[in-house]
Design a protein around this nucleic acid. Structure first.
Lengths: 82, 82
DNA sequence: ATAAAATTTAGCAGATCGGCTAAATAACAC
DNA sequence: GTGTTATTTAGCCGATCTGCTAAATTTTAT
C-alpha cells in the first residue's frame, strides 16, 4: 500500500487506466516533469508492489495495470463497512 | 494516503473499527510491541491525515475513527472500475 | 503537597525515499 | 558497425520515516 503513497505513482496508475491499462515507459514519462530515471523508479516501485506488469516489446517497454491487485486494496477498505 | 503506508497504522485503524470506532491511546498502544511514543507518533500521523480525531477526556485521550475520510480513498479507487 | 498514572514532546540515529546527473544497455536504422 | 532511440542502472544527496530513550505534562488519588 505504500506504493500508493506518492502522488506521481497514483497518477501513473490513473494514466494507465485511461489508456486502456497499457502504456510504454516513454508515454508515461513524458506526462511528468520529473527526469526520466525518476519515473522509471516509480514504475519499478509499482511493479514491485504487483500493481504493474512489465513487458519488453522491441526497444520499448510496455507497462500493464493489474486491476486485480488494486481490487485487493478496495477489499481491505471494505472491512470498514461492516 | 501515505498515512496508510505503515502496517502499524493500518492495524490501528482496524483496531479502532472493531472497538466501535473509539479507543484510548493506552488501549491502542498496549496492542503493539512498539514503545509507547512510537504508537503516539503513528496516532498523530493518522490524525494529521484526518483519519482520526482526538479528544481529551480526563487524563486519557480518546481517538475516534473518521470513516468518511476512509471513504474518500475507496472513492479514489473506484475510478478504476470505469 | 506529593505521588502515581496516562500520555505526549524532544531529540537522536539509522533506514528508506525521491529527486538528480552521468553512464550503461538493448534494439533498430543506415 | 556506427549512430540513434528508448529505457534502465548506478550512485550521490538532502529530506523524511520510524524506531528508541529520557524528560515533560496533565490529571487523579492520597
Amino acid at each position: 500500500m505504500s506504493a500508493l503513497a506518492h502522488p506521481a505513482r497514483r497518477q501513473i496508475l490513473l494514466t494507465l487506466h485511461f489508456r486502456g491499462g497499457e502504456a510504454t515507459a516513454g508515454e508515461i514519462a513524458e506526462r511528468f516533469e520529473h527526469a526520466w530515471p525518476t519515473t522509471t523508479r516509480h514504475l519499478h516501485v509499482l511493479a514491485e508492489a504487483g500493481l504493474l506488469q512489465q513487458e519488453k516489446r522491441g526497444r520499448t517497454r510496455v507497462y500493464t495495470l493489474d486491476r486485480k491487485r488494486l481490487a485487493l486494496i478496495t477489499e481491505w477498505l471494505a472491512w470498514f463497512d461492516r
